[in-house]
């Protein structure tokens, strides 16, 4: 690991200022992703700002009936919170489907959102990677790309965002709140936090230098059944090949409203507006639901080894919709 200087921040604004007062700074919260990457010399910060003693670790009811989640709330605490289990079960399920008990005890809300891809070429410093070394090329597009994106990627990068939590937060229309080095604050819908790779896959999000996530807010839960279904290579402790977070409201005739976010298929948690529009009014029988599910991710394109993800995503969504309809025990 490269040498770095270390400081313990005393307040969120202090942390943000410290980040721009030094060269090549990283905030460190849980550290479960950053230290992993630092050991491999993929992340090489010259200064670490420890934000573990800032507070920012409470979950509070907000005035609008939603929830305000501190950036330092650990994944395990968020998943176990009675309000999350009762009102946002899709979030609780997504968190519990991710990582291991030990990692969830350490990983934070803010850090989970900003974790880096698990693309094996990104992790292998002997290989070219436009995200790690802009302009060096992408080894995944023509390489072994079984875990890679089928939508939202570019010729420069087809890495996926690995988070489960972010997929649930995307379907819940979460808003990310930050503080700047000058003390000012701003709020970004989660959808606007992430950047698609385009020609600059090294730019993964819209956060500016020194900008620190302080908390995430969830609006009141929309009506409907919340489901998180994750498909992976082993039963536990593996990243998603495909994940579906859905909130589906049925009425007497069929689907009254539906929100769907996909994980494992794109560089960010993926919403499909056309799909959600098509789902409204769909009769609640299995064949009708599966027929609409088969239209999901229009425009998706595999790269060889990951071709299966498109059908897997559609079938996983189909199963989720059938489960939401209550027609069969899916």
């Amino acid at each position: 690991m490269k040498t770095f200087t270390y400081q313990r921040a005393t307040s969120p604004a202090d942390a943000a200022q410290a980040a721009v007062a030094h060269r090549r700074t990283r905030f460190i919260a849980g550290g479960t992703n950053l230290l992993d990457l630092m050991k491999l010399d993929i992340e090489t910060p010259e200064h670490l700002v420890d934000i573990n003693r800032l507070g920012l670790d409470t979950i509070e009811d907000s005035a609008d009936g939603g929830l305000r989640i501190g950036a330092m709330v650990r994944n395990s605490d968020l998943a176990a919170d009675p309000r999350v289990r009762e009102r946002y079960p899709v979030l609780s399920r997504a968190l519990l489907a991710g990582a291991s008990g030990q990692l969830r005890n350490k990983a934070t809300t803010g850090g989970n959102l900003l974790q880096r891809t698990r693309c094996y070429y990104f992790y292998d410093t002997a290989m070219p990677c436009n995200k790690r070394h802009p302009g060096s090329g992408c080894a995944a597009v023509e390489g072994f790309n079984r875990i890679h994106a089928v939508i939202g990627g570019s010729e420069s990068c087809i890495a996926t965002h690995p988070s489960d939590m972010a997929v649930a937060m995307r379907v819940l229309d979460a808003v990310v709140h930050t503080v700047m080095p000058d003390g000012s604050e701003r709020a970004l819908p989660l959808a606007d936090v992430y950047r698609l790779p385009g020609d600059t896959p090294e730019v993964e999000n819209a956060l500016r230098a020194g900008e620190l996530i302080t908390h995430v807010t969830l609006p009141p839960p929309p009506p409907g059944r919340q489901i998180y279904r994750k498909v992976r290579d082993r039963a536990s402790y593996a990243f998603a090949l495909v994940a579906v977070a859905a909130i589906v409201q049925m009425d007497g005739d069929g689907v009254a409203s539906a929100r769907v976010a996909f994980g494992g298929v794109a560089p960010m948690p993926w919403r499909d507006d056309a799909l959600e529009a098509a789902l409204r009014g769909t009769p609640d029988d299995e064949s009708s639901l599966r027929a609409v599910a088969d239209t999901a991710l229009a425009g998706a394109r595999g790269h060889g080894h990951n071709d299966f993800k498109i059908m897997l995503a559609r079938r996983t969504l189909g199963a989720v919709l059938v489960e939401a309809s209550g027609r069969t025990a899916a």
């Binding site: 460190i28 550290g31 479960t32 230290l35 050991k39 291991s100 030990q102 350490k106």
Partner: peptide, 28 residues
């Protein structure tokens, strides 16, 4: 040494974590 095997698990403030994926100085 990458948080994948759990052999380094210890309890910090009663909670299990991977000791390999955290810095000693973060535990003052």
């Amino acid at each position: 040494d990458h948080g994948q095997c759990g052999a380094c698990t210890v309890l910090v403030e009663g909670r299990r974590i991977n000791a390999c994926l955290t810095l000693a100085v973060m535990h003052d």
